[in-house]
Design a protein around this nucleic acid. Structure first.
Lengths: 221, 221
DNA sequence: CGAATAGTGTCTGTGAGACAGTATTCT
DNA sequence: AGAATACTGTCTCACAGACACTATTCG
């Protein structure tokens, strides 16, 4: 029998991304217990083996219990581990990232959760700085060849909103007509019959994702 | 104090990729203990917290102890977890994948390790089928926009060898002159001064990676 | 010399950026 | 009408595939 697998702490940490004032932001929750009690950190918690089907279930439960969030886009990022990341001892944290449209953030208000711009999420406890950095990196990378940025938008959106979201996530500016062409060709979104957004001078057609899950493209947007 | 984190099994599993007879293959090791004793499975083992700095160290140790391998390309894939993947109970396995040139496989011979084509690695115990599938997926995906396939080649290689490796990993055929142009532009490899491979009719210039680590490209190869 | 493979030069089609031009709504 | 934003059409340039052509070695 192997000897050394006792006393390993297994947790899940979620980097919850959203948009705030037009910039990519992450949710930080003030910790209510030691270690680092009172300090803002990623939303996370212990894996409960008797309750959680797997770590994805842990992430969903943590989002529900600690942030009041139900359906969100959630994907595993990577696992961070080692002796020094948690003062309680050797630990492994399976990190996830979630994408939540700004409109769906209402449940967070009651829960001591701050939304801070992604670049300002520094000096966090544990190795949460590294987790956030990795999440941003993944978001930028995968954003350019997948429907990922669309999950930061409400269910229906205009092509201008979609382009602007890609621009914010990828940190570049995109040519409008080329963008429309590519969206047309990739057809991972479809127009909602007869639905128009009326917030701008000329009403714009509303689109929605054709599939509820992430779509990856052959080429970059 | 939280209640449910005891008795969680934490392991590491490594999908060791190599090339055999021109096709992508994985290393499987006959298990020497329960569960699934005697069945071929991925190379893996328990995390030893008092010995392993982190799970990457576990992977390196397991490769050293069980496969006799030292320096190999190693990257985290993702973590697989849940109640049903291991008959011993709720477990989490941090999966890694390794790339080893065919020439470096000598140490495996003495160790009950089989090399089987990636598509034939089916019916493995635990959820190792899923881990292999995810590894192949990652390899194919990342191979097209990074120097990843080069890590399956010996230290120096010809451009024809490099192209063929990309073709095998990505499962497509590439235009030779276009490939050479892109390699030139991306310059993640450099010619070795005065070194030529003499295995073909006309000797070919030998190249090596400019950086020992993975390089990601802006565009696809 | 011919076979075989390495490596180069050039043509062409496709697709992306640029940007002008048209459409629709509001004040 | 004019502003503002949505959307479309077209020009051009760059790049990738195709492929012919040259280079070098061996038998």
């Amino acid at each position: 029998m192997p000897s050394g697998e006792e006393n390993v702490i297994l947790t899940v940490d979620v980097t919850l991304f959203t948009l705030q004032r037009g910039a990519l932001a992450v949710a930080l929750q003030r910790r209510d217990r030691a270690p680092f009690s009172g300090r803002p950190a990623l939303v996370g918690g212990y894996v409960h083996p008797e309750e959680d089907r797997d770590t994805m279930a842990t992430a969903l439960r943590v989002l529900r219990e600690k942030a009041g969030l139900g359906k969100v886009f959630l994907e595993q990022l990577m696992t961070f581990s080692g002796l020094n990341r948690d003062p309680r001892g050797w630990s492994a944290s399976v990190a996830y990232y979630a994408l939540v449209p700004e409109q769906d953030l209402a449940p967070l208000a009651a829960r001591e959760i701050l939304i801070v711009p992604a670049e300002e999420a520094r000096g966090l406890p544990f190795d949460h700085d590294a987790i956030v950095a990795k999440g941003v990196e993944r978001l930028r990378g995968k954003g350019s060849y997948s429907s990922l940025p669309a999950f930061l938008l409400p269910e229906t959106f205009t092509l201008t909103q979609l382009r602007e979201m890609y621009e914010k996530v990828m940190g570049v500016s995109l040519n409008d007509s080329a963008f429309r062409r590519k969206i047309e060709e990739l057809h991972f979104v479809e127009p909602v019959e007869g639905a128009y957004s009326k917030v701008t001078a000329r009403p714009a057609r509303l689109y929605r994702l054709r599939r509820p899950a992430l779509t990856e493209f052959d080429r970059r947007l």
